[in-house]
Structures are given as structure tokens and as C-alpha cells.
Nucleic acid binder design. Structure first.
Lengths: 162, 162
DNA sequence: GGAATTAAGGATATAGAATATCCGCAAAAC
DNA sequence: GTTTTGCGGATATTCTATATCCTTAATTCC
């Protein structure tokens, strides 16, 4: 059970977009260079963010991506689900129905108990991600990343933002 | 991010083994028939449980599997990790190191903040699973499964348990 | 208007993991 | 000694993640 690497990419890209000044865009090319990622493939992850309406896009030179709403109104689950999908990590195939002792026409009143427990854990995972806002990440980074790197990165981005 | 179907199989098999009388064993063949699963492949899942020391095995006719400890001393995480592995669902590839603005020899004091948050969610998932004991599942099933099916299944198992 | 740049989406290729089967071995039961 | 069992290795198949390429339409700038 491993998340796609695109999830990591999307989270880092959103953290960068969160630092963009109002109304400016950053291109796939710039985001790929900044993170050392394959441009074409990263583009797919960004398209997922776009389809989930987490980012706005614009075409042409000086085009690219920006957040569709403020970084305090976007949480980790939004981003993770945009890339990874909303399907639960545990899928119940109802193997209890294969029990040879089952009377014909036996009808279960509830979903399988095993599945319900696994889904509960899945919800706990989602709850944790839902509670962390993108702005929280930016806050942590701004404290932890050494000021010189923080600032030079910001300048690097601004130079390329349309 | 999808768990292997073997996780579902292992959980259901453990629930059955939990109902086995002291000192008796149930074979892969019986467990596969009961759940309508491919015997050879289910065997791999049971081997994982055995390697994790969750079950004891014995060879020969009347051989098979039984729980290595009581069902109240085995939790869901034990079983899930035995089959799925203990690796975290989010793997950090440290793409922050690819930042072209990084001074040579820059050294991070902590793991990436993105990873730490993702790992926190992973821990919440594991915590939930850790809190559910196998005996809890058996308790739920004994209340929910219709008594006639519950009993006939129990008899079916006993007839095949060595 | 024309050239360059961009996101979007479709088609395709590659790598690796999940799923599944088969075989030979050693231990235990009878 | 025969049968049954778990175990491990080898192999095949299917599916997903990863990755690249190409076309199209929108936008910017000259």
C-alpha cells in the first residue's frame, strides 16, 4: 500500500504556489526544475489538481498555475485525494458470501465487520490529513528552512512567475 | 493506494482460527474452501502470518494453522502488517534536495515537513488498527451473523479441523 | 497577423507490484 | 511406506505506476 510519488510532488508544488503573490502564475516547467522532476509527468499531477479545482490555470507565456483559494482553505486531504483518488484503501470483496454453509437467499443486514473496521482506520487517516491546512505546512517550512535558502528560493520563483 | 486482497483474506482466516478449540488446527485447504479463495495463493498469506509468529503450524494430515496466542492478544495491525509489510504508505524521496537554490553542503536538521505530516496520518491509521483486537471482531460477528449460519459454519470447521 | 509559450488530454511504452499457479522438499499421521 | 500438510522457490499473468510523446487550443508578445 504505497501512495504515488505524484502525491509528494503535488504537496511540494502547492507549498510553492502558496508563496506566490496574488494573481501570478508559475509554470510546470519552473515547478519541475525547482524540484528536479520530469516535466511531462509532473504535468499530469498538476492537471489532477486543476480538475479538483484546487488550482487555477492560464495559458500562453507567463501562464501556469496558482492556488484557486487561499492556503488556509486547502488541506492535505484535498491535495492527496486530488492525485490519489478518493477510493478507500481497503476494498471488501465480500468473501463471506462464499461460505458453503450459507442458506440460499441469506441476506446480510450490514457491510462486513472486517471492512467496517478497516474503513474506520481509513477515516482516521483521512481525518488527520483533513486537519492539516496547506498554510500550516508553509508555516512550518518558513520556520525550519534556513532563511538564506528560503529567500533565494522565493526570488528564484518570482523571477519565473508570470 | 490499495491494500492487497490478502489482507482481507488473512483477517477472515484469523477470525475463523479464533473460534477453533484449544490445540486443534485448520488447513489451508479448509480455509480456502470456506472463503472461496485460491488455495495456493491463500497459502502465501498464511505463510506471512506464520513468519510473523501470529499462528502456529503443524505438518501432516490433520495439520494446518492455529493462533499462536489468544485472540485478545492479537490486534488488526499485527495481521495487516504481517501481510502488507511494515513500510509506511508515504515514502519521502527528498525532492527538496533538488532545489537549484540550495547552497552546496546544505544540511537539513529534520526530515521533510511534508513527510512528517504524511507519516502522522499513517500513524493515526495504524493506531486505529492497533486498538482493535481480533477478539473484538469475533464479538461483533457473533452478534451480527445469524445464529444458524454461525453454528453451521462452526460445525463445518470442526469437521475439518485436525 | 504571426511566432512562441503554455495547459490539456490522448496515445503509447516501460517497470514493477499484485495476483496466481506449479513444483519439490521435509515433517507428521496413519 | 503412503498420504497429507506447510514451506519455499520459480515462473507466468495481469494491472498499475511511471514516463514520454504528440496534437490542440488558448494566450502573450512582437
Amino acid at each position: 500500500m504505497i501512495l504515488k510519488s505524484q502525491v509528494e510532488w503535488a504537496l511540494h508544488c502547492c507549498a510553492i504556489l502558496a508563496g506566490l503573490p496574488e494573481g501570478r502564475y508559475l509554470s510546470t516547467k519552473a515547478l519541475a526544475e525547482l524540484h528536479g522532476l520530469p516535466k511531462e509527468y509532473l504535468s499530469k499531477a498538476l492537471q489532477s489538481l486543476s480538475q479538483a479545482a484546487l488550482v487555477d490555470t492560464t495559458l500562453g507565456p507567463s501562464g501556469g498555475y496558482r492556488l484557486a483559494r487561499s492556503s488556509s482553505e486547502i488541506n492535505f486531504l484535498d491535495i492527496v485525494e486530488a492525485v490519489e483518488g478518493k477510493a478507500r484503501s481497503f476494498t471488501c470483496t465480500n468473501i463471506r458470501e462464499n461460505n458453503p454453509c450459507r442458506p440460499a437467499g441469506y441476506c446480510d443486514s450490514k457491510p462486513c465487520a472486517v471492512a467496517r473496521i478497516m474503513w474506520e482506520a481509513d477515516e482516521a487517516w483521512r481525518d488527520t490529513l483533513r486537519r492539516v491546512r496547506l498554510s500550516d505546512l508553509v508555516g512550518i517550512l518558513s520556520e525550519e528552512v534556513r532563511p538564506d535558502l528560503w529567500q533565494s528560493t522565493f526570488e528564484w520563483v518570482l523571477k519565473r512567475a508570470g
